[in-house]
Computed example of a mutant assay.
Amino acid sequence: MRIAWIGKKSPFCGNVTYSREITNALLDRGHQVSFLHFAQEDSEPDNWPNLREVSLPFIYKSQVYTIPTFKATKLLTESLREIKPDVVHASLTLSPLDFFLPEICEELRLPLIATFHTPFAGKGAKLVSGTQLLAYQLYAPFLVNYDRVIVFSQIQRELLAGMGVREENIAVIPNGVDTVKYSPGFSQIKAEF
């Protein structure tokens, strides 16, 4: 399967780790992955897989959000047309392009999946959950046009469904840890107890 993965390589955050680990796993399973991301150049750490990359131009990039140049939409569309993926995956939230992806993919007749990384603290949280709720309210009308949306908890699924995203299009896949790769080594402290 040919997969166009739209994600982040920098600055470091959980979305970067998610994109790296999932694209590595997809490659290990024999899939062809093209990685589209906001970058000025293609020099990244060695722990990234060797795959086709498309660098999208930006004006501003931070851990939270990226402001693309006007050329980014055209480059993204042309790249997807050239790659001809079987599916497009967007690891959201990235940039205002998130809102145009459904239209681009519909025009190119490509299925579009998103992993919506915006957490929601739920009941009892104060300012942070208010800001997070605003992100859900902003994204929900656009997520309606994605073929599938992946979230990490049932409360996120219920929240998006309440905002109009079809429940059958929302998949809950909780975050996990590869316990073989990320397991602690021998510890003298543990041995002393």
Rank of each mutant, 00 (worst) to 15 (best):
V151N: 01
P102G: 06
V177S: 11
V128Q: 08
Q137M: 11
N169M: 06
F142L: 04
Q154R: 14
A161Q: 05
F100S: 11
L110K: 11
G162L: 07
L160M: 04
S183Q: 12
G122P: 04
T118H: 02
E168G: 02
L110F: 10
G124S: 11
A121G: 11
T179G: 03
P102T: 06
F120K: 05
A171L: 08
D98Q: 05
Y139N: 01
V128R: 12
Q154I: 09
L110Y: 12
H117R: 08
A125L: 06
H117A: 07
T118N: 13
D178S: 05
V128K: 13
L160Y: 04
V180P: 03
L110Q: 08
A161F: 04
T118C: 14
Y146H: 13
R148H: 15
L134G: 03
Q137S: 05
E103F: 14
S153Y: 02
I155S: 15
E158Y: 03
R148W: 05
V165T: 01
F142K: 08
V144T: 10
P102F: 02
T115S: 10
V180M: 06
N145L: 09
F152R: 13
A135Q: 12
H117G: 12
E167K: 13
M163A: 02
C105T: 00
I150P: 01
L133Q: 13
V151Y: 06
L110I: 11
A114L: 00
G124M: 08
C105E: 01
G122T: 12
A171Y: 04
V172K: 10
